[in-house]
Design a protein around this nucleic acid. Sequence first.
DNA 1: ATCCAATGTTAAGTTAATGTTAAGATAATG
DNA 2: CATTATCTTAACATTAACTTAACATTGGAT
Lengths: 228, 228
Amino acid sequence: MSKKILIVDDEKDILDLLEFNLQNEGYNTVTASDGEQALLTAKAENPDLIILDIMLPGKDGWEVLKELRKDPQTLDIPVIFLTAKDSEIDEVLGLELGADDYIVKPISIRKLLARIKKVLKRSKTKQPENDDRIIVDELVIDPQSYKVTSADQDIVLTKKEFDILYYMAKRPGRVITRKILLDEIWDENVVVIDRTIDVHIRKIREKLGTENMGLIETIKGVGYRFKV
Amino acid sequence: MSKKILIVDDEKDILDLLEFNLQNEGYNTVTASDGEQALLTAKAENPDLIILDIMLPGKDGWEVLKELRKDPQTLDIPVIFLTAKDSEIDEVLGLELGADDYIVKPISIRKLLARIKKVLKRSKTKQPENDDRIIVDELVIDPQSYKVTSADQDIVLTKKEFDILYYMAKRPGRVITRKILLDEIWDENVVVIDRTIDVHIRKIREKLGTENMGLIETIKGVGYRFKV
DNA sequence: ATCCAATGTTAAGTTAATGTTAAGATAATG
DNA sequence: CATTATCTTAACATTAACTTAACATTGGAT
C-alpha cells in the first residue's frame, strides 16, 4: 500500500518538483497551495504525512499546524516543515509546536526523502487509520475504536470476537477456514480446538443480532464466510 | 487600530531609536528602562507586543519574561528579545521560556520591523482564549494551566495523570493501547510495566469522581478509551 | 430417509488481563 | 541537603475473556 503525502506550498515550481520526485519514489501525492486548502485536503484525504511550507498566503504554516493538531482527525498526521529561512528560531518554534521534522530550502531531495522515510517509519507502528473502518449496510466495524455498531446501536465485542469479525469482514465472500483463523488471530504456538472457534462465532452471531442474521455463513467442511 | 508596543531597554539611545522608528511605522509606543518598570507598565498598558532587552539593571530580561508568563494578564503578550550576545544558548533559553522571537544587537531596523509584523500577525490570529481546552459536559481539561475542573470543582492531577487524560481526551472514541501511551507520554528509553499505567488510570478515574464514572473505558486486551 | 461427520450450544473450568493497595524509588522543590 | 510530592513497582484480588467438555443439532452423502 503506497503512502499518501500532502504537499503544501504556494510556489508551483516547488510543488511540481516535490510531486515529481515523490511520485517517482512510489508515493501517492496530493497538493494544496494555501493554508485553508491544506486543512480541507488534510481532512478529506487523510494523508500519511504532510510536507508543509511555513510561508503561505493567508494562514501560514504555523497556524495550519496548530489547527491540524486541534482536530482529532488530523491530530496524529506527521508534519515536515519546509522553510526558506535558515534562522534556527523558526525551526525550533516549529518543532515545539509539534512538527516532526523540518527541511530548509533550497531543498535537497535526497535529504527530504530520507526524512520522509524516517517519519513514516516512526508512524507506521501507530494506530489503525480512520478509513480502516468497514461498513456493510447498517453495520460498522471500526478498528480505531474497537467498536461495532449496528444501526447506530453499540455492539460490545471482546477482543477475540472483534478480531475474528474484522478479519472476515475484510475478506467478504471468501471462505475462511478455521486453520486460517487460528494462524491469523491466535498467537503462534497457541493451540485451541475447532470448537473454540465455533463458540466465538456463535457469540458474534448472537451479538450481531437478528438483523444481521446470516452475515456469517457456515460452509460445512470448509469454514466460515462473511456475506458479500 | 494602531498596535501598542512596549519597549524595554536601559540605554536611552536605543530606546529613542526604537521609539522613533516604530512610531514612524504607525505603532503606538510605551517604554520602560528596567525590569520592575517593565512589568508594571505591561500590566497597566496591556501592550500588543513587548520588545525586551535581556541585559537590564535589576531584574533581567529572562526574569521579566518569566514573570510575564506567570501572570494571566500578560501571559499571552508576545515578546521579542533584544540581545547583544549572539550565543545560541541565550536564544534557545529565551525561546523555551516563551519569547516569540529575538533580535540581535546591533539592531537592523528593517529586520526588527519585519519580525514585529510577523509576530503581531501570528498573535492576531491567536484565538482570544485557550481554545485547546477540552470540554466534555461538565469536565474541562485545560492544558494551558494544566488544570482540570469538573462542574467548576478543581481536580488536581499530577503531570503524568494530566498528560494521559489529555492525550486520551484529545482522541475520544479511539482505543489507546498501553504501548501508544508509553510511546507518547513517557520519554524514549524509559521502560515501565503495564501495571504502572493502570495505576495512573486508576488515580485519574478516582480523581474524576463518580460524576465522570465510565469516562475512561477499559477495552480488555486492547487498551483504554475515552468515551465520546 | 437415514446415518454420520461437522457444527451448534451450553455451562462450567481455566487462563489472562486488569484493578487495587501499599510500600519503595525517584524526581522536584525549597 | 532535606523534604515532599510524584512515580513506579510488587503482590495480590478481582473480573472478564477464553477454552473446553459434553451433548445436541444439522445437513449432505449414500
